[in-house]
Each structure stands twice: as structure tokens, then as C-alpha cells.
Nucleic acid binder design. Structure first.
Lengths: 133, 133
DNA sequence: CAACTGTTCTATAACTACTATAACATATAA
DNA sequence: TTATATGTTATAGTAGTTATAGAACAGTTG
């Protein structure tokens, strides 16, 4: 998988790594069982520090997105139970929507924007074992 | 308007103040022309520092949500042009949706969640001059 | 053995968040 | 005038976060 590290402006480097993995998962560029780049390799590739990548991976592991193994490296996990704190997530979503709403975006436009994003998402490929990084 | 400062966990105090104002605007608890609490009063009310509140208000002003006047205080502005960086906003929304999607939430459930949030929003009351804090 | 994984440790510099105190500028009210 | 109320600016200090750097450790694989 290729990491972009778009200037999300305001997001820290390790947060962006975490976000990119989740996005890759949603868009089907990454599937359970796939391996992520070794932290040293990714760090070199992005010209950032080893520890910064590690922190991003740790975050992903705590959220249940990946498994970290000392031998085989970082592997995308099978989606289990929700895990995510639904309350915090909803509150965050609510704020994003309120931003759009108070800027004059209509319900229709907001809904269409959401639909457009969702349309590009791909079902998480749960049946697989090989890695294709 | 009453500020709650829910523990958004990860959001700084001034960010939460900023968010609460936008939410209040979306839910109709605050309208253009309304005055916000004086920074000292709000700071005392929340048991936080004057500057923290000020920073939140400054952020809101830079985003065009409010006007700051040395005499009359902070007043909610009339919604003008978009102002908001649509690209960053969309990217942020995309990540939130990807989080839900990768946690197994279906398009229908996500859409329903969005609709439920939007349903509670109230048109920004643009015709008004009095203050009702 | 060497090489490759993640992991842990210590240290440091830079930045951010928050607090604290004081003073200033400007307008309104007594 | 004096007092009060508003936001504004300046300075400072503390604490925590972010990112860097280098080194070493612990397993597993070739």
C-alpha cells in the first residue's frame, strides 16, 4: 500500500498514518491479512522517524485495526466487534455536519456528499489470507 | 447560551468551546445577532482561564462565525460566503465515514445516522437583531 | 550466524495547551 | 470625572505532545 501523508493540516504525522490505513481499508486498497510496511521501511520512505510510524501503528492496534507481530510485522486484522466508541464517533460526526449546516449547506447537499463518499467504499474483504502490499 | 464542555476527549478546551458554539448554531440555540458570554464570565463559569476562552472566540471569528467587539462583546455573525475550506472538511468527513465503514457499519446505518443528526438541525435564523443569551 | 521484525529506553528540541498576572483601549453608566 | 464592562496585548511559567535521534533488546527467519 502506498502512503500519501496528505497535508491534513492539523493532524499529526502518526494520526495521518492511522487515517491513511483506515481509508485504504475502506477503499479496498488494503484487506485483512495484508501486511503493512515495516516501520523502518515506511519511516525511511516518508522521511520521518521510526518512532512516529510506530506510534501510528500502535494506535491502529489499540483500535483493533491491525495486529503487531515481532516476526511477521504489522498485519491488518479481521474486523471484529465494533470496538469503536460509538458515542465519541457520533459526536465528532455531529460537529462535522454542524459545520456544513451552519455554513449554509443544505440537507440535500450534505446527504449527497455523504452518499458520494460512501459510494466509493468497498466491502472489507474478509475472506483472504495472502498479502498484497 | 449554556456551555457544556463535554469531555470530547482529545479536543482541547478552546476547540470544545468553538464546537459548542457551532452546535448551538445548528440546533437553533444560538442565532445571528445573539451575544456570547463575555470571556471573563465564561472563563469563570467553566473554571478555566480567560485566554483559553479568548482563543476559542478568536478561532470562531477567523472562521467567520462571530464578530468580536471591544465594547459589545462577542456577537454571532450573519452567515456569509462559505468561508470553510471545503476540501479539508470533506477529507475529515471521509475519514469519519471510513471509520464507521471499516467497523462494519452498513451504508444504510451510516446514512440513517447522518439523517438523524441532520433532522435535528434548525435553519439558521437570519432575520433578527435582538439578543437572547 | 546474520538479517529482519517489533519493542523498549533515554534524551532532546520544538511546539501546543493552559494557567497566571498585569496592563491597555474603548465604550457606557453613574 | 469615576467606575465598570468589554475585548486585546504582553510576558511568563508549567505541563504535555510531537517528532527526532541513537542505541539496544527480543524474538523469528534464512
Amino acid at each position: 500500500m502506498r502512503f500519501v501523508l496528505e497535508i491534513a493540516e492539523g493532524d499529526s504525522l502518526y494520526q495521518q498514518i492511522r487515517n491513511q490505513v483506515i481509508l485504504a481499508l475502506a477503499y479496498g486498497n488494503l484487506s485483512p491479512g495484508d501486511g503493512l510496511p515495516p516501520i523502518r521501511a515506511l519511516a525511511a520512505d516518508l522521511s520521518i522517524n521510526l518512532h512516529t510510524v510506530h506510534k501510528g501503528y500502535e494506535m491502529l492496534e489499540q483500535e483493533g485495526y491491525i495486529h503487531l507481530n515481532r516476526r511477521i510485522g504489522a498485519v491488518v486484522a479481521q474486523p471484529r466487534s465494533p470496538g469503536k466508541d460509538l458515542g465519541l464517533w457520533q459526536q465528532n460526526l455531529r460537529i462535522r455536519l454542524a459545520e456544513a449546516w451552519t455554513q449554509g449547506m443544505s440537507r440535500e447537499t450534505i446527504t449527497q456528499t455523504v452518499q458520494a463518499i460512501l459510494a466509493d467504499f468497498v466491502p472489507v474483504d474478509t475472506g483472504r489470507s495472502g498479502a498484497e502490499v
